[in-house]
Simulated scan of single mutants.
Amino acid sequence: MAPAIDYFFAAQSPWTYLGHERFVRMARAAGAQVRVRPADYGKVFPASGGLPLPKRAPQRQAYRLVELKRFSDHLGVPLNVQPRHFPVNPDDASRLIVAVERDDGADAALALSGAVFAAVWRQERDIASAQVLGELLSECGLPAARLEGSREPAVQQAYEANTQAAIDAGVFGAPSYVVDGEIFWGQDRLDFLERKLRSFN
């Protein structure tokens, strides 16, 4: 039986960006079904004891920048550690990903997610801008109408359901990959996720 992975993330997460392409390749190689689940970490953090970045201690904020640079160099994934449009409200981008998964499937949603991450962390683009989101749809070969569709109440409800599912699963950070109730937190845990996926063969 093919494994199923709940892929929980924040649309503005640099760590999700750093691991995204590796994760997509890994999931495809395993024949896994991916459920693309952007979540509102503004609600996940309070439920799990976490703090949003601006409220973290200065030492933690400084070390985060060091680690981002380390992983960017190690993985060969270009990343601006302090991009122009960050912090940024991720909600519109998240809802757009939800709408694309609903109407175009998981592969399209994964492609758009990768484009959203790169827009923030590589290209210095504002993912809170409707114009930028429309451009990303076009660049991914997706219908412009998805932007309007992302404003439907059903999409907001699905976004909220993703957030509650993350909380119920015990998720506390992004990215989190959940397989059979087991959480793999962080792009630096992808090796462990790969071992888990192999166990299904």
Score class of each variant (00 low, 15 high):
residue 2 A to T: 13
residue 5 I to W: 06
residue 6 D to I: 05
residue 9 F to Q: 02
residue 10 A to L: 12
residue 10 A to V: 02
residue 11 A to E: 03
residue 12 Q to F: 14
residue 12 Q to D: 05
residue 14 P to Q: 09
residue 17 Y to A: 10
residue 18 L to P: 02
residue 27 A to H: 11
residue 29 A to R: 14
residue 29 A to W: 09
residue 29 A to T: 08
residue 29 A to L: 15
residue 30 A to E: 04
residue 32 A to R: 12
residue 32 A to L: 10
residue 33 Q to P: 01
residue 34 V to T: 05
residue 36 V to C: 12
residue 37 R to T: 12
residue 38 P to S: 10
residue 40 D to E: 15
residue 42 G to F: 14
residue 44 V to N: 04
residue 47 A to C: 08
residue 48 S to E: 06
residue 48 S to R: 05
residue 51 L to K: 08
residue 51 L to T: 01
residue 53 L to P: 00
residue 59 Q to R: 13
residue 66 V to L: 10
residue 72 S to I: 02
residue 73 D to R: 06
residue 75 L to N: 05
residue 75 L to G: 09
residue 77 V to T: 11
residue 80 N to W: 11
residue 81 V to R: 15
residue 82 Q to K: 11
residue 85 H to Q: 08
residue 86 F to M: 07
residue 88 V to D: 07
residue 90 P to E: 05
residue 92 D to G: 05
residue 93 A to G: 03
residue 93 A to D: 05
residue 94 S to P: 13
residue 95 R to P: 10
residue 97 I to G: 00
residue 97 I to L: 10
residue 100 V to D: 02
residue 101 E to P: 02
residue 105 G to F: 06
residue 106 A to E: 10
residue 107 D to I: 09
residue 111 A to S: 12
residue 111 A to I: 03
residue 112 L to T: 06
residue 114 G to P: 02
residue 114 G to N: 00
residue 116 V to E: 01
residue 120 V to M: 15
residue 122 R to K: 15
residue 122 R to N: 03
residue 122 R to W: 08
residue 123 Q to N: 14
residue 123 Q to S: 14
residue 123 Q to L: 14
residue 128 A to E: 08
residue 129 S to C: 10
residue 131 Q to W: 11
residue 132 V to L: 10
residue 134 G to I: 13
residue 136 L to S: 01
residue 138 S to Q: 13
residue 141 G to N: 11
residue 144 A to V: 03
residue 145 A to G: 14
residue 145 A to H: 03
residue 150 S to C: 12
residue 151 R to N: 01
residue 153 P to W: 09
residue 154 A to C: 00
residue 155 V to R: 01
residue 157 Q to P: 00
residue 162 N to E: 09
residue 169 A to G: 07
residue 171 V to C: 13
residue 174 A to S: 15
residue 175 P to N: 06
residue 179 V to E: 02
residue 179 V to P: 01
residue 181 G to E: 14
residue 181 G to V: 15
residue 183 I to C: 04
residue 186 G to P: 14
residue 192 F to W: 12
